[in-house]
Simulated scan of single mutants.
Amino acid sequence: MHRPKSTLEQWRILQAVVDYGGYAQAAEQLNKSQSSLNHAVAKLQYQLGIQLLEVRGRKAYLTEQGEVLLRRSRHLTQTVNELEQLASNLEQGWEPSLVIARELVYPMDILTDALAKFLPESRGTRITVVDTVINGTNELIVNNEVDLAICGMPPKGYIAEPLCDLEFYLVCHPQHPLAEVGELEDDHELAQHLQLVIKDTGVNPTQEIGWLKAEQRWTVSNFHEAKVILSKGIGFCWVPRHLVEDEIKTGKLVRLKVKGASTRRIVLTLVVPQRDNQGPACKLLESIILEQHAQSSSELTPYMLVEL
Rank of each mutant, 00 (worst) to 15 (best):
G202C: 09
S73F: 06
T250W: 10
D147W: 02
Q78R: 14
Q295H: 10
M108Y: 11
P162E: 08
V133L: 08
K252C: 07
A191M: 11
Y46N: 11
Q15R: 05
L119T: 11
K232Y: 10
L86E: 15
W211H: 09
L166M: 15
G233S: 06
L300Q: 08
D186E: 04
Q92P: 00
L70T: 02
V228D: 13
R255T: 03
K43I: 07
S6R: 04
I289Y: 05
G93A: 09
Y20M: 04
L290H: 02
E67W: 08
W238T: 00
N143D: 15
Q10C: 00
G235D: 02
S122P: 12
A24M: 10
E291S: 14
G93M: 10
Y20D: 06
G210A: 03
A40N: 06
S97N: 13
T112K: 15
A24W: 02
V203A: 14
E95L: 03
L243W: 03
I100C: 12
F223D: 08
S287A: 14
V41L: 04
T132V: 15
V258S: 00
L90G: 05
W218T: 11
Q216R: 14
H293S: 04
L253P: 03
L48T: 05
K199V: 02
L69I: 15
Q85I: 00
L212K: 15
N81V: 04
L104N: 13
A191L: 01
L305G: 03
L163A: 01
V17P: 09
A116L: 11
I100R: 05
P120Y: 09
Q45V: 02
Q29V: 15
Q15I: 08
E84R: 13
K5P: 09
D19Y: 01
P120G: 07
L270Y: 06
E291I: 00
A24Q: 14
A261C: 01
D276C: 01
L37T: 04
Q47R: 15
Q51W: 01
I150A: 07
H39Y: 12
E307C: 07
P177S: 11
L178C: 04
F223I: 09
T79D: 14
E167A: 09
I289T: 05
R56C: 04
R74Y: 07
A101D: 11
G136N: 11
S97R: 15
A214W: 02
P205I: 02
T250R: 15
K252L: 11
H188W: 07
K257P: 00
L48H: 02
V80K: 07
Q195V: 10
I248N: 04
Q295Y: 04
S33D: 12
T219G: 03
L178S: 03
C282I: 01
R102N: 09
K5Q: 13
I234S: 07
A26Y: 01
L170R: 09
A160M: 07
I50A: 13
V142N: 01
A27Q: 03
N38W: 05
L148N: 04
S122Y: 08
V244S: 05
A226Y: 07
P96T: 03
V105A: 15
S296M: 09
V181M: 06
R123W: 12
T125Q: 07
W218V: 14
L30D: 05
A42K: 14
E82Q: 14
Q292V: 10
